[in-house]
Design a protein around this nucleic acid. Structure first.
Lengths: 189, 189
DNA sequence: GCTTCCATGTAAGAGGTTACATGATTGG
DNA sequence: CCAATCATGTAACCTCTTACATGGAAGC
């Protein structure tokens, strides 16, 4: 039951439609939570029924109509309650890590190496994206200034976390690839 | 459908019971996948029905009987197939990150700071655990030697990844805590 | 005596993924 | 002309979590 809180947290930035949220929670982008569009539409409907968000219809002519949502006072109270709750520990569940764990049980490590390289490219792309986002968040201020006196530092901090995570992942990918290649050469040569 | 592959990967090390696997996939330890005991018992039963693992009963006198499982040839083939499959991207889903994202929407950041400090302690404890595990995995060899010529480097590599991840998380926790505290002081003073 | 460890499950419910459905508009 | 973007959902399915159940042995 934390998707609801992720949605509420995202809506602290302003009004968004399900579609816009879906992009923010997308596979390639999501710096603090991931969810599919279907989940978001369902969750928004539920949150609205419970009075934690309120939506208003925007009639558009050249495009489909949309509904913009904002957090209600009850929603803010729910977030406050959530923040004070004991967090459930977060879990590692990553296909690629399982493949590396199993890498010396399989005959051919080549596909794993390929996937590590692809994941490294993804990490680099995400990092650049995040760095751009940091710049937009902090506006004209420099980082120290923004962090000390900016109004909304939450997204900035999670973005910094995302960069740190991606850099750690990138380094690991490179290290594992170098090692698997060295072992392959040793085996053949 | 990746829990099955995580189980197969874990069983590459030798024969284990559901109970032993449950400890390895436990909340506090799990360095490459997390799962609850119930999931593992169910998954092992399923894997056995499908012939990917085979179990043998160990009758014990002072303790309950147990079943030890090992990977079959069909299981190895399944792992091989899995390793070559396109990986599904791994997702960020972490309560604590959501709380930080929302931290400037809530009145009192104190509980979030407390949780970040606790998470930092967990990261340190896990890191020590992982370092101990590395030592046991590499045995008498030094790291370079083991990585170059050791037989089973998969678990070593995922453990290195776990250490890198925990260190990144730890640094982020410290940074966020320092910042939130500075802002609290500025707000009050 | 109380807790923890060993050892294995069942059942119900919450949460997440995959597949499907619709339809105009904008860009290459 | 084909693909992507905008915009919102439903339905079926799979996975994961929570709660419950059992019972002896070893340690404090």
């Amino acid at each position: 039951m934390a998707l609801r809180h992720a949605v509420l947290a995202a809506l602290l930035d302003g009004e968004y439609s399900g579609y816009q949220l879906a992009k923010a929670f997308d596979v390639g982008v999501a710096n603090f939570w991931h969810a599919l569009p279907q989940q978001l539409y369902a969750e928004l409907a539920k949150l609205e029924r419970e009075g934690l968000v309120s939506g208003r219809q925007i009639v558009q002519e050249t495009r489909p109509n949309k509904r913009l949502f904002r957090v209600t006072d009850a929603g803010l109270a729910e977030l406050e309650r959530f923040a004070a709750d004991a967090p459930r520990p977060s879990f590692m569940r990553d296909d690629l890590v399982v493949k590396v764990q199993a890498v010396d049980g399989v005959a051919d490590p080549a596909p794993v190496i390929e996937q590590l390289l692809e994941r490294a490219r993804v990490a680099e792309a995400k990092t650049e994206l995040f760095i751009g986002l940091l710049g937009r968040l902090r506006g004209p201020l420099d980082e120290a200034e923004f962090l000390a006196r900016g109004e909304r530092v939450g997204p900035y901090l999670t973005c910094l976390g995302g960069i740190g995570f991606e850099r750690a992942y990138l380094e690991w990918c490179h290290r594992v690839v170098a090692l698997l290649r060295a072992r392959e050469e040793a085996r053949r040569g």
